[in-house]
């Protein structure tokens, strides 16, 4: 008998990442379209405004910050990660050397890389929107801060990554063994119930007050837990062709 092929999990994951990063690229183009549509819809309203009246001066600021762009990227990451776990994508994995574990690890890497690119896309949309406004709207700009601080960059990355991880976990839960499916359904219903009856019980104020860096560390830790759980579930999952 010919000698058997012995490829390590790492090699397979690397190969899968190499191909997936190219084949899943349309999700990034949908982020650009999404950002552009929303950028256009909320073209001149900015993310917020503030007004002051002093000494017969009525001053109004329209503030352009990253809130909307981040909000969109986060939703995008969540939905994209769920899409990565859908049937069509899972079936494609079966046509090459893979296991559910290797595919999920590869998806994890893809989500992280795409989250990083998403931050750049988000920043690009922000600056392009400002450029369009500066040409079309005859109001001067005040530049409070133009440059993403490294910690802010890290925070944006980590929160996008976090929601991608949650999406991946969510998608994997519903493809996993029956007890995990039921557990997830129960958890989702419980969370919705809590949200409806007492929305104030979820208080993120403490988290927001943390410095950017600490916040990123928190997000990344939760993301790491979600990724690990997703991989663990994938390792237990059968191939479901439905």
């Amino acid at each position: 008998m010919h000698s058997l092929t012995n490829l390590s999990l790492k090699t397979i994951v690397k190969k899968q990442v190499k191909w997936k990063i190219k084949l899943y690229i349309s999700s990034l183009s949908s982020l650009i379209i999404l950002q552009s549509i929303f950028g256009f819809l909320f073209f001149s309203s900015g993310s917020g405004s503030s007004g002051y009246g002093q000494q017969n001066l009525d001053l109004n600021f329209t503030i352009y910050s990253l809130d909307m762009h981040l909000f969109l990227s986060v939703f995008w990451a969540f939905i994209s990660a769920i899409i990565f776990t859908t049937r069509a994508y899972r079936m494609d994995d079966l046509s090459v050397i893979s296991s559910r574990t290797s595919s999920t690890i590869a998806n994890t890497v893809i989500i992280m890389i795409y989250s990083l690119i998403a931050v750049f896309i988000m920043a690009s949309t922000f600056y392009l929107q400002l450029l369009a406004i500066s040409f079309l709207k005859n109001e001067p700009f005040i530049i409070d801060n133009l440059i993403f601080s490294p910690t802010l960059f890290m925070m944006c990355f980590s929160i996008i990554c976090l929601f991608g991880a949650i999406g991946l976990l969510f998608g994997n839960c519903f493809k996993g063994p029956v007890f995990i499916k039921s557990l997830t359904s129960f958890f989702v219903m419980f969370a919705v119930f809590i949200l409806i009856i007492s929305p104030d019980s979820i208080n993120l104020k403490g988290l927001i007050m943390l410095p950017n860096f600490m916040m990123s560390v928190c997000y990344l830790s939760v993301a790491a837990i979600s990724f690990s759980l997703a991989i663990w579930i994938a390792n237990k999952s059968e191939v479901s062709r439905t």
Binding site: G46, I63, Y64, F141, I142, I143, I147
Partner: peptide, 8 residues
């Protein structure tokens, strides 16, 4: 005025 605040 329009203010650019590259922050959240």
């Amino acid at each position: 005025y329009n203010r650019i605040k590259a922050s959240l």
